[in-house]
């Protein structure tokens, strides 16, 4: 669902910390017809220009709070990502992205379910790795975007 609209197309920017470019970020929506408890958000399979950026290099920013790792989000059992709201995926990459258009592949992982399923215990012990096919919520496949880096808009 909403696969083509998962990323806001004018949202790709480099991230600067203490005067140095440390990565990039972009805005996403929940690709479902409902929001979710934040604890269910299990990250993104993400490639940019053919380079894969695993969950360990990502953070997720939502609800006006600082960007958080997915390990931190796991404990946010009572905080909700509302359906109407946009979140930001932050990705660590020394120097950020170069000017111009980038080819982004993305699949969202939300462990939303409609009740008990045979794989439940397995998912507690070994949560699905985004992009592996399981736990993809309502994004069936990796979606691809060609998005230009927005420049000059950073703090």
């Amino acid at each position: 669902m909403f696969d083509q609209f998962l990323i806001r197309k004018d949202s790709l920017e480099n991230v600067t910390e203490n005067g140095r470019v440390t990565g990039f970020k972009f805005a996403v929506r929940i690709a479902d017809y409902r929001g979710c408890f934040l604890s269910l958000h299990n990250g993104y399979y993400l490639t940019v220009d053919g380079v894969e950026y695993p969950n360990e290099l990502q953070k997720f920013q939502i609800n006006g709070k600082e960007p958080r790792t997915y390990e931190e989000l796991k404990t946010c059992c009572w905080e909700h990502w509302d359906y109407d709201d946009e979140g930001f995926v932050y990705v660590q990459k020394e120097g950020g992205l170069e000017s111009g258009v980038h080819h982004i592949g993305i699949q969202q992982s939300i462990l939303a379910q409609y009740g008990y399923m045979p794989w439940d215990e397995e998912w507690v012990l070994h949560p699905p790795v985004p992009g592996s096919g399981q736990g993809a919520g309502k994004t069936e496949t990796v979606s691809f975007f060609d998005i230009a880096l927005s420049e000059g808009g950073n703090e």
């Binding site: 408890f37 604890s39 269910l40 796991k74 059992c77 009740g115 439940d120 507690v124």
Partner: peptide, 12 residues
Amino acid sequence: VYLDVHQFRDHV
């Protein structure tokens, strides 16, 4: 209403 059984993540 829904039933997301992984809400707590450390157990079903």
